[in-house]
Design a protein around this nucleic acid. Structure first.
Lengths: 233, 233, 233, 233
DNA sequence: CATGAATGAGATTTCATTCAT
DNA sequence: GATGAATGAAATCTCATTCAT
């Protein structure tokens, strides 16, 4: 019961701190402000966290941990690297979109902080990134993804895209629904942007001409003989 | 002459400030430090810049402006959206890699600063992003890129990837040469990661069998008749 | 039994507090530190002592009291002011040397604290000083020490010397055995304090008596022939 | 001129700080108090001194330095170790008595502070102590003081006595004139230290010469008539 | 122009101490 | 009787910024 009260208080402080840090930034936020918003004294904040920075770093822990756990629960149910990658991307974006203060804090305040790299919360975030990397590798090993891909690059592309979109959303307000981009991202990463030949309206007619088997390509409306077909060996 | 001296002083301050801000971050850097490194008094720093933040925002201007100008000079010489996109990506990454302090400052200190959005330097960075967007649109219009692509998304993917790689480089030290990634990024964005059918070792034999034109797929060593070929219409 | 437990706890706190205060000084020591070292809660420390300062003042009481009692037991067995003075000096220095934390606390933390003057522990220390003063006076009254000595000054010389040596020991590490100095101190001071023969009101009359040159000492009013004088060689 | 202003300000701060530290002690004194008393802002105090402790340690420097210089000027004019020792003791006590705040600070706040040992001011104080030690040694070497004296002990006795008296004066109010004790101290210590006549190889011969009773002192091997002896009354 | 000097304005942090359980 | 938890109350120290010279 008493433990619950401490826990509740800690959570309250973390919640309020998240709100304020996300809105005003770390430096512009004072402990006085957080303590007042949390209904405790400044000294009490320091009972729970040894420093303002420790408080900052403690904030993303719980949400991130839950997210990692969820990922780990879900992944086994998914078959195929492609589905798994998509699931992680979807999960990531959902996490960011559903917890805007969390994502603002992580992307705008924490990611660029060197000390954050030595944090448990960062370790958890790295766990997710590692899961994603594993899925990419799995796809390569399974022959689903191209053999010569650099899995780190793929991961950077996925995470970079997600983060870029999310930061734009926070700073510019657009797009307002980043989760909508999951499929476009996945599709594009999987298939590329370039229009391919087979995507063109293409048909080949095979016919006997000049006593030979010939193929003509019908494109842009006008057919022309493109090849004589020799029997294969 | 006197103007030159002022200009030189201003540049000195900007140069030193870039070095120190990039290394220690904005908050951890003091005007005293910058003034000492620049060989001027603190008050003199305030002669040139009205506030510490104004100084911060003034730093990336010149480099960014030069970069934009270069892009604008080069692009007309390039034919084809694909080449142009590649050129901008390459230029971006080269800019970041060749000016590590600049990129550390922009990516770690400035991008997450809301006030930075109202800055001339930001406007210049946005110019580059706009060039990239235009090229992507051009490719779509030209039929080189898929019609249903969201050009903003493509741009976010490209920029997000570049920035993610660059931030990893600054914070983790790897990869140590991000420009190497230009072609892998472009190739992947253009073509996708998934292994396609046509990439498989596939050959089709056309032959006359049973008095009909038939096609057999040679795959994995064993041929089997897969279709009878009817004359097209 | 319960009383014993309380007593034991109190002693534990005092012991630990002595150690820490002596090592780090009063201001640098926190109640949290003492309570942890004592295995009790901070609040419990306040059950036994009303304030940090009260705890500080309580520490030297017991040791000092025991020391006073010992002095009082021993002194009656000693005959002669000189022996008594020496005994007290020896006792003092032994007390300080055998209880280094105690002496560090008393000499470095307490002696310069004005409030300490109103303390029972100080009262006890003053008791010892008074014993020493009494012995000095006794010596003067007995005619062992010079009549015109200021007994306070003598005491200050003895105590000042002891404390100076002890403080040097604590701060500089030398001398490492202050008790060795008891006799040098006593000898030197006594040589200065002690009534010498030539200082006594002494006059020698030389005269011819019985046909011999004789000398008579006039002392205490009554002359008596003390020697016949032979021509020297 | 500007230098003078800075110097004056520094002195003002030091003077006020001395007053307040001496009266209330280091811990009980706040920078706010000192700055107000000095007529400057708190920040200005920190312009001159990097920390409260640095200010504390800076206070005794000047007075002590002047005192050392004075000692060094005076000593050469004095002949004989005894006079020199007396001069230093007198100088010491005069310094302490004429600068009560200084002596209160040094004796009650600084002497027991370990960090003070690494201070320039402490170095100066040590200089004086060294001068005293040198004089004592000189006396021993000259045969004025006993050969087997430990000069360090003598010095500790002198300094310990002075300090004890001075501390008593500060804490108890008595004696109110410590300089009065210079001669008693010197006399007493000297009586203990001094090589005495009876310690010298001395014999007095009484004999009849010229029809009178005469005394000759045999010293250093050569006798000479020193007095005619008249019959006493 | 340049700057030495001064400071306003807080912010973080620390602890001794209290009190309800 | 013991303590976990909370906090009141400062105090030190830091800097961006200003201004007179």
């Amino acid at each position: 019961m008493v433990i619950k009260r401490k826990e509740a208080r800690r959570n309250k402080i973390i919640t309020r701190a998240l709100e304020i840090f996300a809105q005003k930034g770390f430096q512009e936020t004072t402990i006085a402000e957080i303590s007042k918003a949390s209904g405790v004294s400044e000294a009490t904040v320091y009972e729970y966290f040894n420093s303002k920075e420790e408080l900052l770093f403690a904030i993303p822990e719980e949400i991130t941990r839950e997210s990692v756990e969820e990922f780990k629960k879900i992944l086994p149910y998914l078959k195929g690297a492609e589905h798994k990658v998509r699931a992680i991307v979807l999960g990531y974006m959902t996490l960011y979109q559903n917890n805007p203060q969390y994502s603002a804090l992580v992307l705008l305040q924490l990611k660029s902080n060197k000390k954050f790299q030595q944090t448990r919360a960062y370790e958890l975030i790295r766990d997710i990134a590692r899961l994603l990397l594993d899925c990419i590798r799995e796809g390569i090993d399974e022959g689903i993804f191209k053999k010569d891909l650099d899995p780190y690059l793929i991961r950077s592309m996925l995470l970079g895209t997600i983060e870029h979109l999310c930061i734009r959303w926070h700073l510019l307000g657009v797009p307002n629904n980043i989760v909508d981009y999951v499929d476009p991202i996945i599709d594009l990463i999987m298939d590329g942007m370039r229009v391919r030949d087979e995507d063109k309206k293409l048909s080949i007619n095979l016919y006997i001409a000049d006593g030979k088997l010939a193929a003509s390509e019908m494109n842009n409306g006008n057919g022309k003989r493109v090849a004589d077909v020799e029997p294969g060996q």
